[in-house]
């Protein structure tokens, strides 16, 4: 048996996104929308996906354009801005948001190592009916976090 998470529970991911940017860049992102969407999610070119198992089922997807990932890397002193490193970075953001969710959802939430996808169409196939979609802007760059998860009984 599966139970959908309430929008209020899923808002923990908004706090995690805010905190991620605040700690790494010293500048909070602007959350432009947060809503229960349809499966038709338009992502960006660089995508990191972490799968949930254990007491929950589903995944979190972080989707960013290359300019934003490059800026995140540069701010951390990274000079290797190759495609592989951009994918690694967006995967690590997904890993951080997924891992941080355990603070609220409990240690029964297990997370996978991140899968990385290049190309905006890649995430559409991963998203089920009603994901929770957070769109944001940081330093004039858009990004998207898509949370698609259910509680197991």
């Amino acid at each position: 048996m599966m139970d959908s998470l309430q929008e209020t529970e899923l808002k923990l991911f908004i706090d995690s996104v805010r905190r991620y940017f605040q700690v790494i860049t010293k500048q909070e992102p602007q959350i432009t929308s947060a809503f229960l969407g349809t499966g038709d999610v338009e992502g960006h070119d660089f995508n990191g996906i972490v799968t949930f198992s254990g007491s929950y089922n589903g995944h979190v997807i972080v989707s960013m354009p290359p300019q934003l990932v490059r800026e995140l890397l540069l701010l951390q002193g990274e000079t290797d801005l190759s495609e592989g490193n951009l994918l690694d970075a967006v995967g690590e953001v997904a890993n951080t948001l997924g891992g941080n969710a355990r603070k609220t959802l409990g240690a029964g939430l297990h997370i996978s190592v991140p899968v990385k996808l290049h190309g905006s169409s890649g995430i559409r196939a991963r998203v089920r009916k009603h994901p929770y979609v957070i769109t944001l802007r940081w330093n004039h760059q858009p990004a998207l976090v898509c949370v698609d998860m259910e509680r197991r009984h």
């Binding site: 890397l73 951390q76 592989g84 490193n85 690694d88 970075a89 690590e92």
Partner: peptide, 11 residues
């Protein structure tokens, strides 16, 4: 497993 984190800690 993240190159970004390994590089950052190293720096």
């Amino acid at each position: 497993d993240s190159n970004m984190i390994r590089s950052r800690i190293s720096r």
